[in-house]
């Protein structure tokens, strides 16, 4: 399965004269984990914001051939585009099960909303299993560990039947084991979905990317396989310039 789920054509985002994204083309395919990398301020998050309807843009975004530009945030989400945020955003005062049940229910009618939940939908229990939170069904999301929150947020997209997942720094703040688990989870869910991952961590990228797009200053610097991109002199230049800083940051985080 390698069909194109999402096509972005010539996306431009203009913040009052400042071009945060300046003409980006991107294709996301089902079955792939597509990494979006680039230095701070490259426009990665802004690109995700544009696709999901949070900021206005020019150009075109097609999901399975249907234009998404101009649609409202919740309509785009209903088309199967799911996203996470750079800082994990879950409903802290609700339990893991409640978080997932809400995420599963955007299609519910008023009648089922106004009644009490009798049992957890199968999709919710399956997803809790999948994201490793089966033992935490009744734990408040607010007291989960950092990494668990990020898994929960991914789980919320899965249970909501998103088939294009845009994940903004999903392993930020995770330890080594949690990263490995997340990597496996990404490949697992990419089997029948298109997954895009915004990340700074190069090791994680090398280990998990099916395809890489490098953004810099709002435009695409390079795109291709991990090896192609790594060998690209323009990419080396951008990353050599920041690599000291990057390694220092990594060392500080460890």
């Amino acid at each position: 399965m390698n069909d194109i789920a999402l096509t972005c054509k010539n996306i431009e985002v203009d913040f009052e004269g400042f071009k945060a994204v300046g003409g980006v083309d991107l294709e996301l395919r089902r079955g792939e984990v597509h990494f979006l990398i680039g230095p701070n301020g490259a426009g990665k998050t802004t690109l995700v914001d544009a696709v999901t309807g949070l900021v206005g843009y020019t150009g075109s975004v097609l999901k399975d051939g249907e234009e998404l530009r101009g649609k409202k945030v919740h309509h785009i989400a209903r088309k199967g585009i799911g996203r996470t945020f750079q800082t994990a955003t879950v409903f802290e005062n609700l339990t893991v099960a409640q978080n997932l049940d809400i995420a599963a229910g955007s299609g519910r009618g008023p009648w089922s909303l106004l009644r009490r939940r009798r049992a957890l939908p199968a999709a919710v229990t399956d997803t809790m299993e999948r994201i490793g939170l089966a033992d935490h069904a009744d734990t408040l999301a607010g007291i989960l560990a950092h990494g668990q929150k990020q898994w929960l947020e991914i789980g919320m997209l899965l249970v909501g039947d998103a088939d294009v997942l845009l994940l903004d720094e999903p392993i930020a703040g995770m330890g080594h084991d949690e990263r490995e688990t997340t990597g496996r989870l990404l490949h697992d869910i990419a089997a029948e979905r298109a997954v895009a991952v915004v990340e700074h961590d190069m090791d994680f990228m090398r280990a998990n990317a099916s395809r890489v797009t490098v953004l810099h200053g709002g435009t695409i610097l390079a795109a291709g396989s991990v090896d192609e991109v790594s060998a690209d002199p323009k990419v080396q230049e951008v990353y050599l310039g920041t690599s000291d800083h990057k390694e220092a940051a990594d060392a500080a985080a460890a």
């Binding site: 999901t52 945030v73 919740h74 989400a77 209903r78 799911g82 996203r83 945020f85 955003t89 879950v90 409903f91 802290e92 005062n93 609700l94 409640q98 978080n99 049940d101 809400i102 995420a103 229910g105 955007s106 299609g107 519910r108 089922s112 909303l113 106004l114 009644r115 009490r116 939940r117 919320m156 909501g160």
Partner: peptide, 21 residues
């Protein structure tokens, strides 16, 4: 009800709710 849970979700993170559809 489920609506009640949803209302709390909107209170705590309206953006997240919108991005769930």
């Amino acid at each position: 009800s489920r609506y009640g849970e949803l209302l709390v979700a909107v209170r705590d993170s309206e953006e997240r709710v919108r991005f769930l559809g």
